[in-house]
């Protein structure tokens, strides 16, 4: 049974999208994953399909899929850029996305092509407001 909104972990140091991805600046790069709300809605995550390193993706492009036992969800780029790393550990340990969505469960790291796209994302409060409206 899904968590109440008050039970969700929402980090301050990341920005969010309407599709429930998050993005965090780490030096010049940006790491991307899915929010606690998203992992909770999906349930037990059993497989994460990620793009090849060096792929160039634009904001809104599909960069992979995340699978629970009974559903597949597409992942969309919160901002455009070139993929510099993917979280290889998820291949053997997809449950990291459930256990630790903002840290161990990160998915891709990119070099952003337009930093303004990051700034346009929702902060925690805006995201929380959006969740309350769902």
């Amino acid at each position: 049974m899904a968590k109440e909104i008050s039970e969700l972990t929402l980090q301050d140091d990341v920005r969010y999208t309407e599709d429930h991805e998050w993005a965090r600046k780490e030096g010049g790069a940006v790491k991307i994953g899915i929010s606690d709300y998203a992992q909770d809605q999906l349930g037990d995550i059993v497989f994460v399909e990620l793009p090849e390193v060096d792929s160039e993706l634009e904001k809104g492009d599909e960069f992979g899929t995340v699978e629970s036992t009974k559903a597949v969800s597409e992942l969309y780029m919160p901002l455009g850029g070139k993929v510099v790393a993917v979280n290889e550990a998820l291949a053997d340990d997809p449950e990291q996305v459930n256990k630790d969505p903002y840290s161990g469960g990160w998915m891709v790291e990119i070099e952003p092509s337009d930093p303004a796209e990051f700034d346009a994302m929702m902060d925690k409060d805006a995201y929380l407001e959006m969740l309350k409206g769902l």
């Binding site: 349930g43 059993v46 699978e67 997809p94």
Partner: peptide
């Protein structure tokens, strides 16, 4: 059997 662990089966 009781409810089965479908997540591990798929992982």
């Amino acid at each position: 059997v009781r409810r089965l662990d479908e997540a591990t089966a798929a992982r």
